[in-house]
Design a binder for these strands. Structure first.
Lengths: 138, 138
DNA sequence: TCATATACGACTTAAAAAGTCCGATATAAA
DNA sequence: TTTATATCGGACTTTTTAAGTCGTATATGA
C-alpha cells in the first residue's frame, strides 16, 4: 500500500534525462526509453500527458522530441503526479460531498476526517518537493 | 496511487468499535462485522493479525471475542498498519541493499534517495498519529 | 515523398488487493 | 460430555487496478 505509480517514476526519470541533455534541441521518446530503460509505448503516453500539462514542450516530425517547458526547480512533484495519474487519494471517500457510493458508512464515518488530515500532509510533502531537488542526485 | 489498504481501514473501525464497547468483557468478530459492515471472513483474518501483534487480546470459545490490549492513545497507526499489511512502501526498491531484482537501475537510480526521504516523512505521519486520535471523531 | 517523430484511443496482460471457503481447535454452557 | 459458538490459519477465487501493447492518424525535416 501507499505506492507511487510506475508512471510517476518514469516521468521523473524522463524529465531528468531531458534536463541532462539540454544541449540538444530536443530528445525523442525513443532515445529516452532506450537510455533509461522504460517501455517505449508506455513512456510515449506519459510524455503526451506531460505535454498537455505544459511541463514539457513537444516538437513533432523528424528530429522532433521534447524539451522542458520550465526550469526543474520551478516544477513541483505534485504537478507531475497530477499530469500523469488521476487517482491520488489515501482513500476513495475523500470527496467533497460523499454519497453511499463513495463511502459505505458516510453518515458516521470516523475515518474520513483523520484520513483527510493525512492526505493533506502527504500532498504538502509533494508540493514542497521540486523536480530540481529530485534530479540533483547522482 | 498512495492508497491505504482496506484492511487498515477495517482494523481501525474494528478497534474503535471494541473500544466503544469496553463495558462488555469482549466483542466477537460476528458482532463487529455486522455492526460496522465489514465482510466477516476478511475481518476475522484482520483480527487474528492484530492479536499476533498484541494490539488486541483474544478469548476463544463460546462467549469469546476480543478486547484491546492497550489503551487507544498508547497505540500508533504505524503499529496497526504493520500488523495488518506487509508491503507498505512508496516504491519497491527501498531495501537496504537493493539488487537488480529490486531496482532495475540501482547503480545510478536518482529516485531511490529522494523517494526514501518521502517514505521517512510519511512513516513519521503515521508514527505520530494514535488510535486514540482517530477514534475521537464522531 | 519518405523516414521519423508525436498524438490518441482502444485493447490486453499482469499483479495486487479484496474477499471467500474450509477444516481445525478452544471453551462456556446446556 | 456433547453442543453451539467462538477463534485460528491456510488455501483459494474473484475483482480491481496498474502496467504494458497495438494500431492508426498526423506532423515535419531532409
Amino acid at each position: 500500500m501507499l505506492k507511487i505509480a510506475k508512471s510517476v517514476e518514469y516521468a521523473l526519470l524522463a524529465l531528468k534525462y531531458i534536463h541532462e541533455r539540454q544541449d540538444l534541441d530536443c530528445v525523442s521518446t525513443k532515445v529516452i526509453s532506450d537510455s533509461v530503460v522504460i517501455p517505449y509505448e508506455l513512456l510515449a503516453k506519459i510524455m503526451q500527458r506531460l505535454v498537455k500539462d505544459e511541463i514539457i514542450i513537444s516538437q513533432q516530425g523528424t528530429k522532433g522530441g521534447y524539451k522542458l517547458a520550465v526550469p526543474p526547480d520551478k516544477i513541483n512533484i505534485t504537478r507531475i503526479i497530477n499530469a500523469v495519474e488521476q487517482k491520488v487519494q489515501v482513500t476513495d471517500c475523500l470527496v467533497e460531498t460523499p454519497t453511499l457510493n463513495d463511502c459505505k458508512r458516510y453518515q458516521d464515518c470516523c475515518l474520513r476526517n483523520p484520513l483527510n488530515q493525512i492526505q493533506i500532509k502527504i500532498n504538502k510533502l509533494f508540493d514542497e518537493l521540486t523536480l530540481g531537488e529530485i534530479i540533483q542526485y547522482n
